[in-house]
Design a protein around this nucleic acid. Structure first.
Length: 712
DNA sequence: GAGCACTGC
């Protein structure tokens, strides 16, 4: 296999000329390395979760399994073998770390074992997950294993859906959900045991929960309340830093059950990973049995579409079985995602081109071969300008192992890394935790609402001081806190913290009654809190743009979005309507759910829902109440022909109107703008933009306007 | 005149 793989590039050289890349032909040379030789084992493959987007499929699957089969399966799990020792440790220690390889059964079994012994006493067991699908499917599985109905002893709680009752003792929930509960009850008094699962993923919510449970444990001890037990569970983890953070608590290792994965590294540095990926695919395709499916990790939609096109072109002349190519990324409509799970006809090879959605969120069975480009798209944030940046970066070693492990789920497999072994070793062990690279305003507001002083809150990794400062200063500007030092919530800040959205957006909602436009503000903020509602497939771009025209407002993208949402709400056959109009049905449906939730909170706060009708100026002024820090002015003042389309933000950064903006066609370009997002790709672009009257800022935020003028 | 990875409340 080794020698064939290295020489195949030469044999197929002529055929790979079809690859649409600028570089010349370059042959990939790989070195065969056994995982065992590296002193490492295949890493965490989740057996508990089925990332399938259609929950019903999983639900039925669970119901169909017989209780005795479920019990037999339980007894086969590695964690079951060591259950007595494990329970002893849990009884003995307030806090412990559990490192469990994939297939150990820790997520499904440990809460059950605890409950069987009634270790939770009068309280309940909370088990957190970073993803809602995981929380739901695991809860269903455990309920079936315990032969109870979901929502009774075993339940789950995720946004928009709470399937628990006062009797619930084992509660699976998203980490964000437990964090929301912590605002109302920072001591988490309902729970006697909190299990933080998938801790290695280091989501902002998990990181904050680490501190919350630590403080709750301490205070409950001091107040002589019932003690809180904490179990941190993870696949692979930076054990030393975790152990140190949790006061040298014990660490227990659980064995996993996975199949061996052979790792091959590229012998030479690959200048163009897309090209290298296509070459590798066809080198392997010529010799691998037809029933071996490939999983290729790429960075995004556009890249996946390009590589897919190339594969289809080359496949026409390549030797080997017929090929079926399946793209897989989060933005793909659910129906199109489904074909990834459908078996290819006998004698056909399935090649899945995926983003890192296939790394942990979604599990594809029967992958024998992983091709890892070793790159990922990562979002970072600069507190100074408020701009976000999306850049392609090398993955961490942990992510490399995670990707490789996807080949060893159902049998032994192989992983082809398109980077050298030296490159691999030079990579950081773990990805930068999210909390170090994202905006912190909502996290800060949540902490302050939970009665915590941000500067003393024990976080396992300290965010950059600039980020903290920028976030607190924004909260002060919005009037949510009284001071940046030792901050306390204001009356409005307290209200803001009850909304599960960005503080900027909750401020908009709270200002809306004043402008008579809460009806419109709810819809707009719901859409802005969701993902892009426009669907633009590469090959039907023209048509998609044409359909967008009928929603366009000369006032800008915000009113355009409002038009889309209103039309969607009125449409009787929503799915069909979305398809015809090139709109994303999933994201618009999500926006509707968000709107309902926000409306319920507004009504609880005794706010009056009224509509401003066609007086959209009111909506934009109201929007400015929360987004006044997101203003930009035309460079060199209005009217300068050369300055057209070039703006400078309130933070003093140069920025341009995004070409997809509704304002792009407007002549002359508006002198002042309000944007929702600032994204740096090649240049700095303002996304989702509306035109405003410069004097509005003066009316809405006079003090801020004064400072802006001084800085300009 | 450019293209947004992935989660979550």
């Amino acid at each position: 296999m080794d020698s064939k793989y290295t020489s195949m590039g030469i044999e197929n050289g002529a055929k790979t000329n079809g690859v649409k890349r600028k570089n010349g032909v370059e042959h990939i040379k790989v070195k065969k390395i056994k995982l065992a030789n590296e002193g490492t084992v295949a890493h965490n493959i989740k057996v508990e979760t089925n990332g399938h987007n259609n929950n019903n499929v999983h639900e039925n699957k669970i119901v169909n399994e017989k209780p005795q089969d479920l019990q037999e399966a339980r007894r086969q799990l590695p964690v079951y073998m060591v259950r007595n020792r494990l329970l002893e440790e849990i009884k003995k220690h307030d806090t412990m770390i559990l490192i469990g390889e994939t297939g150990s059964g820790k997520t499904t079994q440990i809460p059950q074992l605890i409950h069987e012994q009634r270790l939770e006493g009068a309280g309940a067991i909370a088990v957190t997950q970073p993803r809602r699908v995981a929380a739901i499917t695991i809860a269903l599985r455990v309920a079936a294993e315990m032969n109870t109905e979901i929502g009774s002893i075993v339940g789950y709680s995720v946004r928009f859906e709470d399937v628990t009752s006062p009797r619930t003792k084992v509660k699976y929930m998203t980490d964000g959900m437990l964090l929301r509960e912590a605002i109302l009850d920072p001591l988490l008094k309902k729970y006697s045991i909190v299990v933080l699962d998938e801790a290695h993923e280091r989501t902002v919510s998990t990181d904050v929960l680490f501190g919350i449970v630590k403080l709750a444990q301490k205070e409950r001890n001091e107040k002589k309340l019932n003690p809180l037990k904490v179990i941190v569970m993870s696949a692979t983890m930076d054990v030393d830093s975790f152990k140190k953070y949790f006061n040298n608590c014990p660490v227990i290792y659980l064995e996993g059950r996975t199949y061996p994965v052979t790792i091959y590294h590229s012998k030479m540095k690959q200048e163009d990973y897309q090209y290298a990926a296509v070459c590798t695919i066809f080198q392997l395709h010529a010799t691998a049995p037809a029933n071996h499916d490939f999983l290729v990790f790429l960075t995004g939609q556009e890249e996946i579409e390009t590589v897919m096109y190339n594969i289809k072109q080359i496949a026409k002349e390549a030797t080997g079985p017929p090929i079926r190519v399946c793209p897989l990324y989060a933005g793909l409509p659910p129906a199109k995602q489904l074909q990834v799970w459908r078996d290819a006809p006998p004698g056909t090879r399935k090649i899945i081109l995926a983003t890192n959605i296939a790394e942990a969120s979604v599990t594809i069975p029967r992958i024998q071969c992983v091709i890892d480009t070793g790159v990922v798209k990562e979002r970072t944030w600069s507190g100074g300008t408020g701009a976000e940046r999306l850049s392609v970066r090398a993955t961490s070693q942990a992510a490399c192992w995670q990707r490789a492990g996807r080949a060893g789920r159902t049998q032994a497999g192989a992983a082809y890394r398109l980077y050298t072994a030296a490159d691999f070793r030079a990579r950081p062990m773990h990805q930068t935790p999210e909390i170090l690279r994202c905006p912190l305003a909502s996290t800060m507001l949540l902490l302050i609402a939970a009665g915590v002083e941000p500067s003393t809150f024990p976080l396992i990794d300290t965010p950059p001081p600039d980020s903290v400062k920028a976030s607190l200063s924004l909260l002060k500007e919005l009037g949510a806190i009284d001071s940046e030092v030792n901050p306390k919530l204001t009356v409005i800040g307290k209200k803001m913290s009850t909304f599960p959205i960005e503080p900027k957006y909750s401020k908009v909602l709270l200002c809306a009654p004043e402008y008579n436009c809460l009806d419109e503000a709810l819809s707009l903020i719901a859409v802005l809190s969701s993902e892009n509602v426009f669907h633009t497939p590469m090959h039907k771009r023209e048509e998609a743009i044409k359909m967008k025209q009928k929603f366009l407002s000369p006032l800008g993208d915000h009113i355009t979005l409002l038009n889309v949402f209103k039309a969607f709400s009125k449409a009787p056959l929503k799915k069909q309507w979305c398809k015809e109009n090139y709109l994303n049905h999933k994201n618009l449906t999500y926006a509707c759910e968000v709107r309902q939730q926000l409306l319920a909170i507004c009504l609880k706060l005794n706010m009056t829902v009224t509509s401003c009708g066609q007086a959209y100026d009111q909506v934009l002024k109201c929007l400015l109440c929360g987004l006044f820090t997101n203003c930009a002015w035309q460079r060199g003042g209005a009217g300068g022909a050369r300055a057209a389309g070039r703006y400078v933000t309130a933070a003093g950064a140069a920025a341009a109107l995004h070409p997809a903006s509704a304002l792009q066609a407007l002549r002359p370009p508006p002198p002042a703008l309000l944007y929702s997002e600032l994204l740096v790709t090649g240049r700095s672009y303002m996304l989702t933009v509306s035109a405003i009257q410069p004097q509005w800022l003066q009316q809405v935020a006079p003090e801020y306007a004064r400072r802006c003028r001084a800085n300009r």
